[in-house]
Design a protein around this nucleic acid. Structure first.
Length: 288
DNA sequence: ACACCCTCCTGGAGGC
DNA sequence: TGCCTCCAGGAGGGTG
């Protein structure tokens, strides 16, 4: 499932290929892929436009096609595949829902087994990504800013970190990895973290995201880069998908549980369950 | 404010 | 071998 590192890798790869290319034709095979248009208006809006740049915001790909922006969210199983010539296998693939024909017969395919991915065509990207929180790798995300985001809420840490309105781009894999690296239990209440824990979380979160980008992302099953390449970060995972295997730090078997309807992987020794005492101490006031 | 559940989807895995 | 059921989960919506 593409999260920040995978989307960042895809954006960089496409930014080296798409700028200067003009859209010659558009084929929509699954209408609901289009979040903002019907196939006819989508096609007539895009045809003749030229790519200017490709970037990322959270888990959204931002494809600049003046005067429009084409925003793509890959959700669970979405893939973008670029090739300099039409590929019969891809043209006929039943999971290809969108095909852009470019200059010199190049192709950009949107492939999505579960059909959750969405494409948004807009003049103003803020209409789509305006509610996203801070970028985890931005210089603005200092330990102090992270502390402010965490302490202004009283939520379980895992669902908070997954909330795109707070931090933009984190998904299930990297949240589990970051919490393990910082030795924090996923159910810990956000306002109970110490300065030291927040510093650990800040540092490890950013390190893991940078490593994963450098590794071309994590390929567990479906993820591929725009040239069909797999990522390599799956070999560096400490907890995600490792239930029943030894913790890389202490040797205890990694456990899997469910938090906020999401599979959650952690080390029961390195990430001890937060004690109830902290919370009751912190909120002694009761309703009257 | 926050937790919880449902919906969208399909392929893969497990049970028998 | 084959059929059936369950499960994974990002995001948005509704409910309590």
């Amino acid at each position: 499932m593409p999260e920040l590192p995978e989307v960042e890798y895809i954006a960089r790869s496409l930014d080296a290929r798409l700028p200067g290319q003009t859209v010659c034709d558009v084929v929509v095979r699954w209408e609901r892929t289009l979040a903002t248009h019907d196939p006819t208006s989508f096609r007539s809006a895009l045809c003749g436009l030229t790519f200017q740049s490709v970037g990322r915001r959270g888990k959204f790909l931002l494809l600049e096609l003046p005067p429009y922006w084409l925003l793509i969210h890959l959700r669970m199983t979405g893939r973008l595949y670029y090739c300099p010539a039409p590929q019969p296998d891809w043209e006929q693939n039943r999971h290809v829902h969108l095909i852009l024909s470019l200059d010199r017969d190049a192709r950009l395919y949107l492939h999505d087994i579960r059909k959750f991915g969405r494409a948004y065509l807009t003049f103003d990207p803020q209409e789509v990504v305006g509610n996203l929180g801070i970028e985890p790798l931005s210089p603005e995300l200092t330990p102090e800013r992270l502390a402010q985001e965490l302490r202004s809420r009283r939520r379980q840490l895992k669902p908070l970190l997954l909330d795109q309105r707070v931090l933009a781009g984190l998904g299930n894999i990297y949240v589990d990895e970051a919490l393990w690296a910082a030795s924090i239990h996923p159910l810990t209440r956000s306002h109970t973290l110490t300065d030291a824990q927040i510093a650990e979380l800040h540092e490890n979160l950013r390190r893991i995201l940078r490593d994963a980008i450098a590794h071309g992302g994590t390929t567990l099953r479906d993820y591929r880069g725009p040239c069909d390449e797999t990522g390599q970060h799956q070999f560096s995972l400490a907890v995600y998908g490792r239930a029943g295997t030894p913790c890389r730090r202490c040797g205890t078997l990694i456990e899997r549980t469910v938090v906020a309807q999401r599979g959650t992987h952690y080390c029961p020794v390195c990430q001890p369950v937060p004690t109830e005492g902290e919370e009751t101490l912190d909120e002694p006031q009761t309703d009257s």
